[in-house]
Amino acid sequence: MTIARDRAALLFANETFYRAFAERDVTLMGALWADAEPITCLHPGWPPIEGRDSVLQSWHAILAGPASPDIECLHARAGIHGDTGIAICYERIGPDYLLATNIFIRSGEGWLMVHHQSGAAPDPEEDVPAPRRRLN
């Protein structure tokens, strides 16, 4: 696979994560996370969550809850380091922005998530990447 195709596949996996979030699709969210590797998640304002069952329970609580936020992924950038892919992007939730790091591993099924972290961020208009800017 070429570097450009690999990066496109990684960005597609990242977009799929945000589609699952936006559509509150618990099944799709579960399919995105690795099941043979340790996984972690740091939701804003929550303590660290470790282990597939706990991480997926946290997503179920967020997606099925009455206050599940509308979310949009903006300015995603991807870098690949061997069989590890890192996507960073802004998350727009209402008028607020978060900055997220999503870490994936390459598997036979494509890119699977092993870590998600998001936290407060400045307005992304202060950090709009050039069209061809890459992490690596």
Rank of each mutant, 00 (worst) to 15 (best):
M1F: 14
I3T: 15
I3M: 12
I3H: 13
A4C: 01
R5V: 13
D6Y: 03
R7S: 13
L10H: 03
A13L: 11
A13M: 09
N14K: 00
N14M: 03
N14R: 00
Y18Q: 04
Y18F: 09
A20V: 12
A20W: 08
F21H: 09
F21I: 13
R24F: 10
R24M: 08
D25I: 04
V26W: 02
T27V: 15
L28A: 08
G30A: 10
L32Q: 09
W33F: 14
A34E: 14
A34C: 11
D35P: 01
A36V: 14
P38H: 07
P38F: 08
I39P: 06
C41S: 08
L42P: 01
H43Y: 12
W46M: 12
P47Q: 09
P48R: 06
E50S: 14
G51I: 11
R52D: 00
R52A: 01
D53K: 13
L56D: 04
L56V: 02
Q57S: 09
W59I: 00
W59R: 00
A64N: 10
P66F: 09
P66M: 13
A67Y: 04
A67C: 08
S68L: 05
D70T: 14
I71Y: 01
I71T: 05
C73K: 02
H75S: 05
A76N: 00
R77E: 10
R77Y: 08
R77I: 02
A78F: 06
A78V: 06
G79F: 10
G79Q: 07
H81L: 06
H81F: 14
G82T: 08
D83M: 04
T84D: 07
T84Y: 02
I86T: 14
C89Y: 02
Y90C: 00
Y90N: 02
E91R: 00
E91Q: 08
E91N: 14
R92I: 11
R92S: 06
I93P: 03
G94W: 00
G94E: 10
G94H: 04
P95N: 15
P95K: 13
Y97S: 06
L99R: 12
L99E: 07
A100Y: 09
A100E: 07
N102T: 15
I103Y: 09
R106D: 08
R106M: 07
E109V: 01
E109S: 02
G110K: 11
L112V: 00
L112R: 11
M113A: 12
M113I: 07
H115N: 15
H115R: 08
H116G: 12
Q117E: 14
G119M: 11
A120Q: 08
A121D: 12
A121P: 07
P122Q: 14
P122L: 12
D123V: 00
D123W: 02
E125P: 00
E126I: 00
D127E: 09
P129W: 03
A130P: 00
A130E: 11
A130S: 05
P131L: 04
R132G: 05
R134N: 02
R134D: 01
N136E: 10
